[in-house]
């Protein structure tokens, strides 16, 4: 489970002064559910997810992830999180097997267990063909599959996806979406950030619309449709976030 309570993050910029990237963000995601964080570029999605993954420390407020506090127990939070983003790349000079095994070791798994899990993940994600090839030669789809295996090696209870389909072709993006659904089916708590409206419609049980670092609305797709009187997700988003958000 994820529970964010008044999460706030400010950055200091020499030119722009103090920037509130995330402000008073509160939401809750239950196991077996996908929470979609929808927002334009620069809305604060990535900062919010980095706070949950303990890559950044909140300026105020806190969150619990899989029962652990992000401020007090960051290492235990990370041990229970799988974080997949466009900014989380692979080591080009390592093979897919070496990469996945490395993260298994970093998560404290014994070698025998790692080998067994890699075998299982390779079966599930169809990695066998390129498992022992260096990642630098991979296609985008191969890279994405390897990244997914990397996030799953320690079988985390919580999955955090930050625009995971950005820059992917249709087939690779579809396999990511399928994988996110499988995570939900396995009972994992999933938070999924995107600015692609169609993905939100397809995937998310609850949608949070974020703009200027603030959560402007949170509901199911049906709830948001009822609230705005719009059917199309893009129209819903424009209604809530205002035209500036999508400009």
């Amino acid at each position: 489970m994820i529970e964010a309570r008044s999460l706030t993050k400010t950055f200091r910029d020499k030119k722009r002064g103090e920037i509130r990237a995330v402000e008073d963000l509160s939401f809750r995601v239950e196991p077996g559910r996908i929470y979609g964080l929808l927002g334009a570029n620069g809305a604060g999605k990535t900062t919010a997810l980095r706070l949950l993954a303990t890559l950044l420390q909140p300026t105020s407020g806190t969150a619990t992830v899989a029962g652990f506090d992000v401020v007090a127990e960051p290492a235990r939070v990370r041990a229970n999180v799988g974080f997949l983003a466009t900014s989380t790349a692979l080591y080009g000079r390592l093979t897919a097997r070496e990469t996945i095994a490395y993260f298994g070791r970093l998560n404290g798994l014994p070698d025998a267990e790692i080998a067994a899990r890699i075998q299982r993940l390779a079966d599930e994600l169809d990695l066998h063909e390129f498992l022992d090839r260096r990642c630098e030669k991979f296609s985008t789809g191969m890279k994405q599959k390897t990244s997914i295996a990397r996030t799953l090696i320690h079988d985390p209870a919580v999955m955090i996806f930050d625009e995971p389909t950005l820059g992917l072709d249709v087939m690779a993006a579809r396999s990511v979406v399928r994988f996110v659904r499988e995570c939900r089916a396995r009972g994992k708590t999933v938070i999924y950030s995107t600015h692609v409206m169609s993905e939100v419609e397809k995937l998310c049980d609850t949608i949070g619309i974020i703009h200027g670092g603030r959560l402007l609305a949170e509901d199911t797709l049906a709830g948001l449709r009822a609230r705005t009187g719009e059917q199309d997700m893009e129209e819903i988003f424009v209604r809530i976030a205002g035209t500036e958000a999508v400009a």
Binding site: A53, L55, G92
Partner: peptide, 14 residues
């Protein structure tokens, strides 16, 4: 630059 730093920082290692 390659984006692997963030991948590494996601691990529970201090």
């Amino acid at each position: 630059e390659r984006g692997t730093m963030e991948t590494l920082l996601c691990s529970p290692v201090a």
